[in-house]
Design a binder for these strands. Sequence first.
RNA 1: GGAGAGGUGGCCGAGUGGUUGAAGGCGGCGGUCUCGAAAACCGUUAUGGGGCGCAAGUUCCAUCGGGGGUUCGAAUCCCCCCCUCUCCGCCA
Length: 427
Amino acid sequence: MLDPKLLRTDPETLRAALRRRGDDGLLDHAIMLDSRRRALQSRVDDLRARRNAVSESIGAILKEAKGDDAAVARAEAAKAETRELKATLDGLEAELTASAGEFDAAMLQIPNLPHPSSPLGSREEDAEVVKVVGEPPAFDFETRDHLELAGAGIDMERGARTSGSRFGYLTGDIALLWMAVSRYAIDLLRAKGFTPVNPPVLVRREALVGTGFLPGDEDAIYAVPGDGLYLVGTSEVSLAALHLGEILAEEDLPLRYCGISACFRREAGAAGRDTRGIFRTHQFEKVEMFSFCHPERSWEEHDWLLSIEEEIAQGLGFHYRVVNIAAGDLGSSAAKKYDIEVWLPGQGRYRELTSCSNTTDYQARRLDCRMRPVEGSLRPVHTLNGTAVTSSRTVIGILETHQQADGTVAVPEALQPYGLPAVLGLS
RNA sequence: GGAGAGGUGGCCGAGUGGUUGAAGGCGGCGGUCUCGAAAACCGUUAUGGGGCGCAAGUUCCAUCGGGGGUUCGAAUCCCCCCCUCUCCGCCA
């Protein structure tokens, strides 16, 4: 959520920033609702002040003049006045509640302001290539894609039989490969001070509203209506909600967590896209970085999280590039987002491997997560998130990058300490 | 699933209808004392919103898990919901 005060103090800056996203539609509406809300608030407050004053006088009258008929009569007259005030107030308060509700609803739909360095545009191709690292691996044989390489290790047919399309079984060496990858990432993050967390994956609506996924992405999210819960698409949601409604001490920041969890995505708008293998599935596992950060240090933190993602990509021997996502292609909560796109020999192109966002104070406001500074008053923290590794795309990257002529896969050295042979003889 | 107890400020904890936004303690901040520190003592210390003000500030409103209700007036009484704890039952 944006700082509501900015609607009054600096609407033109807001408008300019939102236009870079191509999404300033709700701004004027919100500004109008805000002034309506405030006008009502004033009237209601004045009436309440009057009611409170009269009401207090009743107490004083009754206390001092027990049995005095004149005093009792004055008290009764005062009661009659407050009853009248109450009738007026009831109507106005209902209007105020409705008006405030409309305002909140509008504010919840306005996305975060993009950072000036987010490129213009609204499509994936509008992203700016920040850097390219390494060279595409060269093969002197016909390359295979991850599904061919994995053989029985990735079983989409049986996955579909059990759960439908876009579900798969990871078995044998592929299951172990994921465990090795995740443990590699967790150890690396732990050494950098992240606290490992195994979070809830079924969450209340508030957690999704707080992270900016709702309202808006209901099509993308699995709901369990009977219990009023939702399955998270990323542990970002549960990790962000970890400090929902809390006040953090300045000296405790940044608080860094790595979430280890399953992720669930309905992939509603993606029918027919990336249907082969485990590139785009309804369920996968992910190790996610999340940081509650001092508001003045979030841009360094963003760069640092990206550098960790790169360290992991390099540790796994990937050829990749880093792109800066266009303003109009950011999710609603990100001010700036870097993706790492890994070169997949099986597809012959760069594909999104990880994502790293600075949501500035946008989520923190919605989550009501604030910092108590050593000096000054409370202010929202900044939150950031980034992918470490996933059981889908990181695993695909390893299989396709390190494939060999005979269809086996050379395990990157970094993973070998985690219970894997040097070569996976899969298919 | 059944029965009971409870949710109060950064934290602990008092408070069953009328200056209670809320005693007391801890913690924090400022000060006295000290070469300095500790201790002791004194003072201070909630959040959100509206109005006025360039600002410091000032004033009003709201907030005692959340939402309704009773009342002139609710932390306090009633109803619903959420959560925590204890016991019983069931079960991975």
